[in-house]
Every structure is written in C-alpha cells, then in structure tokens.
Design a protein around this nucleic acid. Structure first.
Length: 278
DNA sequence: CTTGTGTCCTGTAGGC
DNA sequence: TGCCTACAGGACACAA
C-alpha cells in the first residue's frame, strides 16, 4: 500500500542507482502491466533510453528519460521496485529493465494491479487522466487551510472519503488519512462540508505533518511486509502509527483511556479513537 | 456535479 | 489436510 511517503522513499533510494544508467531492453512478463502504449511500442520506446532523473507526483513515480520521454510507474497495492543483479530472479516480477551496468531494474507486483506507462512528456494519454487531474501535493506550500476548506465546502460525504480523493490531496491513502484525522481530532465519518474552520485548519496541518513524518521514517512497513525499500529494508513509521491497524488497543495519547475502533467507511477499513476524535 | 457501488487481481487468513 | 469465503486496497467505470 505505497502512499506518498513510501513512493517518495523509494524515489530517494532508487535515484543513485538509476540516474545516468541506460535501459538496454525491457522484458515484459505480464503484458497487462503495460498501461501505455502497446507492449511492442513500450519495448521499442524504452530501449536505449538514458535515465535523467526521478520525480514523484502523488503516488506516481516518474522516471525522467532522454528524448522527452517519461516512464511512469504506479505501484497500486503491492508493487515493489528494486535494482538487482542481472541474473537474480525476483518473485512476482512483472517487468524487468536490463541496465547498461549488468544489473536490472525490476518491477514486481503480486496482484497485477500496478501499471507502468511510457509517455511523451507534455503529451499524456487518456490512460493517465487520473494523474493529470491530481490535486496539490499536501506537503507543499500551495496546500493549506484555505485550499482544503474550499474543496470540502458543501460536500456531504464523510471527510475520510474525500481525503482519499486524489483530486483534492494527492498521495494520501488509507493509512495516512486515518492518521491525519487522528492528529486533527476529527471523526472520519464527519460530513466534510460540516467541519468548522478551525478543524479544517487542523486537518490541513495534520495531513502535511503526518506525510512529512512518514517520509522522515521511510514509510510504513506493515506485518505483511508488502511495502519494502528497494534494498529490501523496512520503513519504521509503523512504530509511530496512532490508530491504523490498532483496533482494540489503547489510544496512544497520554492520559487517554480510549480504545481504537475500526469501521468500514466508503468500503475502506477506518481506524479512530472515539475519545480523541469528535 | 455528487455520491455510492462494483470491479480489477491475487495472496493470505480464518472458518469448518 | 483441504476447501471455501472474506478481505486487503488505489483507481476507475458506472448508475442513480
């Protein structure tokens, strides 16, 4: 479940391994992983491309190539990226990029929901429309209480649902939305348009802070180990989670004797402290 | 436009 | 032991 902090961590770790390298050829093990263009077009287009840099937009990782091309990767639920030895096999590997130094850049994903796209910069296909309509990065200055308030105004859906809407705040997923609502002291089921101004302010701040903390601690590696750093290591934000995955456990706020509850909201399992969050 | 629901996909956990 | 079902969840299609 890579969200913004996990993708950012992956970006920072992969950068020194990929920048300056040339992709010799791509091996597509599962054709449905290629979101754009055709598999043949993808293989043809990626061969010989040099990696100029790594960027991130929301949960998308963008590998900037020469000739105005971008390799866009979305890990969805269980995607994993790593650089391995040329003869090293990778479990659940879907696409492998042979590099000019004898190593390979591997995209693995058990569930086959993730996608990779090879696109011309400034000419994104329909398949990436979601990326184009994405809202601001919640860790940047253009995301603030005024912006969030404007986007929540008049909305009757639970605030939790809107935090997962990438058009409002990109990069937020199930873990960090629960954590942000806890920090802001807001119940996930509250109708978004009914939040008081001070609550919206707290929420905007909490989102920025929790995502920044997530990056600082290299993301959240849960027990299932689905998210791992490119070198196989684990993040450590899971040790700092206040509510996510802590159903039935005592609230972590000092002096609070609340017990963390779990509830399905918008088809997602949602965690909150009934004492701290109102 | 907004809101809610179903689907994609596969591994894993739990019940019996 | 093995079969079956529910669940995990990001994005998107679709209906109302």
């Amino acid at each position: 479940m890579p969200e913004l902090p996990e993708v950012e961590t992956i970006r920072l770790r992969l950068r020194p391994l990929l920048v300056g390298r040339t992709v010799v050829r791509a091996h597509v093990r599962r054709p449905d992983i290629i979101g754009f263009p055709s598999v043949a077009g993808f293989r043809r287009g990626i061969a010989g491309r040099n990696v100029a840099g790594l960027e991130r937009r929301g949960k998308y990782l963008v590998v900037r190539l020469d000739r105005g091309m971008n390799l866009v990767v979305h890990l969805r639920l269980s995607g994993h990226l790593e650089v391995v030895g040329g003869y090293e096999e990778v479990r659940y590997e879907r696409v492998r990029f042979e590099l000019d130094n004898g190593k390979a850049f591997s995209f693995a994903e058990p569930r086959v929901l993730g996608r990779v796209y090879l696109v011309q910069r400034d000419k994104y296909p329909r398949a990436l429309a979601g990326m184009m309509s994405m809202g601001p990065e919640p860790i940047h200055a253009d995301f603030d209480a005024a912006y969030l308030g404007a986007r929540l105004r008049g909305r009757t859906t639970p605030v939790k649902n809107l935090l997962l809407d990438q058009r409002i705040a990109c990069g937020v997923g199930n873990i960090y939305s629960d954590e942000a609502l806890f920090r802001a002291g807001i119940r996930p089921l509250r109708r978004a348009g009914r939040l008081a101004k001070v609550e919206v302010g707290r929420l905007a701040r909490a989102l920025t802070d929790v995502l920044t903390d997530g990056i600082k601690w290299c993301g959240t590696t849960l027990g299932d180990g689905r998210y791992r750093l490119p070198d196989g290591g684990a993040g450590s934000f899971q040790k700092r989670l206040a509510v996510f995955g802590r159903e039935g456990e005592r609230c972590r706020r000092r002096g609070c004797d609340g017990v963390v509850r779990r509830q399905r909201i918008g088809g997602r399992s949602t965690h909150f402290c009934p004492v701290c969050q109102r």
